[in-house]
Design a protein around this nucleic acid. Structure first.
Length: 471
DNA sequence: CCCGTGCGGTC
DNA sequence: AGACCGCACGG
């Protein structure tokens, strides 16, 4: 019997014929946690298991030319105060086992798992080898954590040189033969592949079946990177939808991204075109209508970014749909609190205070287009749905509203975007005021006085904006 | 306070 | 894609 076999080998002459049979019936049921687990543990041969996966995202693959080395792959469950590394464990019987040598290499994400041209660099990676080799004594410690494993990417033009090197090292865990497909290798993802050679007291050697980790994705590639929502300029809008929202996010691909609104089994997409994706880091979209148009209370739903190609999602942020109140008696009810907003849910008597959009500290009541604009203005005045509708009938106002598109001046950084937003706010606000000036004063005063006097803070806000505009 | 290192922005 | 650079952080 050959002493070096690429597959799961049991040495029957060590008196474990039955375990050999069993192993052949269920070769790699390493994840089994069932009731027969103990039995299997006793009977099966040693096996290699990944007990801590590598963190799949968040690390940039580094070029050799970047000098300082490529950092360390963390464990999937690693946290700031409890750091972990990718870890393997030798499970099963190890009586008579002298030592184990584990070789880690990179393989392609998809089957067949070919040797990957990218390199592993770090503590146990011989210089220029691109692989990692450790020797472990399973009797002392069955598991081994790989601290300081970095991924160093090779340039495309060095791709075949690198593969050639791997061949000369005899690294081809899944016997793919280095054959073809040199060009279509995905350079933005890899898997760790662990091969384990066992050396027994009697001199015999076995190789365990190679095991692979979950994929690891290059952080720099927007096609695979993590999705993150940083901020929305508003977190509220009516259940009718069409609220214009500005989202700041990590880099996205404009042709491969969607915004999902979700609650329970309901879901709908935020509406935007590719041209509404600004420099990959901001999206201007309109909220979809909520499924139920007749809600009487605020409804909190989740908003996520989702990459279409791999269905990857960001962490959710919550967005509140506010009711549209059509009850004329309900809306006649006057606000009882100071600082009521001109929002339809206020006129319906609910109590929640809208959160300040956190990236507009200077001008919390950002104007945008459509009914959202009305919802936000004037803060501190209590008007109700009837008045909103009356205001909306005024042609001057309609013009003001429809004229409020945001100029998308190319900015070099996000602060420039904020400047744009602020400018736009001021312009729109000023237009709005001018147009309000055309409204019959008596008409307007009636509308306002019938409800509540503007608050002092609000007047400050108006004054401030006006001053800026005049300068 | 300096330096090596990790990290991220940008060209 | 590949390289370069600067900042922040920890020793």
């Amino acid at each position: 019997m050959s002493s070096f076999h690429p597959l799961h080998v049991a040495s029957s002459d060590r008196g474990r014929a039955s375990s050999c049979l069993l192993a052949q019936k269920s070769p790699v049921s390493t994840q089994s946690q069932g009731g027969t687990e103990m039995l299997e543990k006793i009977l099966e041969n040693p096996r290699l298991v990944v007990v801590e996966e590598p963190k799949d995202r968040g690390m940039r693959f580094r070029y050799q030319c970047e000098g300082r080395s490529a950092g360390s792959i963390m464990g999937a469950s690693s946290t700031d105060n409890n750091k972990t590394q990718p870890t393997i464990e030798i499970q099963g019987p190890i009586d008579g086992l002298k030592k184990a040598t584990v070789t880690v290499s990179l393989v392609s994400k998809d089957v067949p798992h070919r040797p990957h041209p990218h390199c592993l660099v770090g503590k146990d990676c011989p210089v220029d080898s691109g692989i990692c080799v450790v020797s472990i004594n399973p009797h002392a410690n069955r598991s081994h954590s790989f601290a300081n494993l970095g991924i160093q990417c090779v340039r495309r033009k060095e791709l075949d040189v690198s593969l050639q090197k791997r061949r000369s090292q005899n690294i081809d865990p899944f016997q793919t033969g280095f054959s073809k497909g040199i060009e279509d290798i995905d350079m933005n993802s890899v898997r760790l592949c662990f091969q384990c050679e066992l050396e027994w007291e009697d001199g015999r050697k076995d190789s365990l079946s190679p095991v692979i980790s979950k994929p690891i994705y290059d952080k720099k590639a927007t096609t695979t990177s993590e999705l993150k929502i940083y901020n929305l300029n508003t977190y509220r809008g009516t259940c009718r939808g069409k609220t214009e929202v500005y989202m700041l996010c990590d880099k996205v691909q404009k042709d491969d991204i969607e915004i999902l609104f979700r609650l329970g089994s309901w879901k709908a997409n935020g509406e935007f075109a590719q041209t509404d994706v600004h420099r990959q880091v901001a999206i201007v979209f309109k909220t979809p209508p909520y499924e139920d148009q007749s809600v009487t209370e605020d409804v909190e739903v989740n908003v996520v970014l989702r990459r279409i190609s791999d269905q990857m999602e960001s962490e959710p942020v919550s967005f509140t749909y506010t009711p549209v109140c059509l009850d004329p008696y309900g809306v006649k009810r006057k606000g009882t609190k100071k600082n009521n907003m001109l929002t339809s849910e206020k006129s319906c008597g609910t109590e929640t205070t809208p959160p300040l959009p956190s990236f507009f500290h200077q001008t919390p009541n950002v104007m945008s287009s459509g009914e959202n604009q009305l919802e936000k203005y004037p803060q501190g005045v209590c008007l109700d749905e009837v008045i909103i509708n009356q205001l909306l009938e005024l042609p001057e106002l309609l013009n003001a509203l429809s004229d409020s598109s945001l100029p998308c001046t190319p900015g070099l950084d996000t602060s420039a975007i904020f400047d744009d937003l602020d400018m736009s706010f001021n312009q729109n606000f000023s237009n709005f005021q001018q147009d309000l000036a055309h409204i019959n004063d008596i008409q307007f005063n009636m509308l306002v006085n019938e409800n509540q006097n503007p608050q002092a803070e609000r007047q400050d806000g108006v004054l401030q904006v006006k001053t800026e505009e005049e300068q």
